[in-house]
């Protein structure tokens, strides 16, 4: 699964620390999501969508491997 969290973060001028505060998670969570090492829960994905004012499908994208 690909995500554009880093891009959205830059677009909204947010540091990882600030974004993690807004989303109510630790910095590790944001960092590991940006590195593609962690898939967030639905609630967290929806929170990010609300913070970035962007639909969830535009932040997260399924890849072929996810369907296996």
């Amino acid at each position: 699964m690909k995500n554009s969290i880093k891009v959205e973060r830059a677009r909204n001028n947010l540091t990882q620390a600030r974004l993690s505060d807004l989303a109510g998670v630790s910095r590790q969570t944001i960092n590991s999501m940006e590195l593609g090492k962690y898939v967030p829960s639905t609630v967290l994905a929806l929170k990010l969508s609300a913070i970035f004012k962007t639909p969830v499908n535009e932040i997260f994208e399924l890849e072929k491997e996810d369907w296996k």
């Binding site: 109510g24 910095r27 590790q28 969570t29 967030p40």
Partner: peptide, 11 residues
């Protein structure tokens, strides 16, 4: 709990 316990740490 960790001081910053969240879903990633739970995982």
């Amino acid at each position: 709990k960790e001081y910053d316990e969240d879903e990633f740490i739970s995982r």
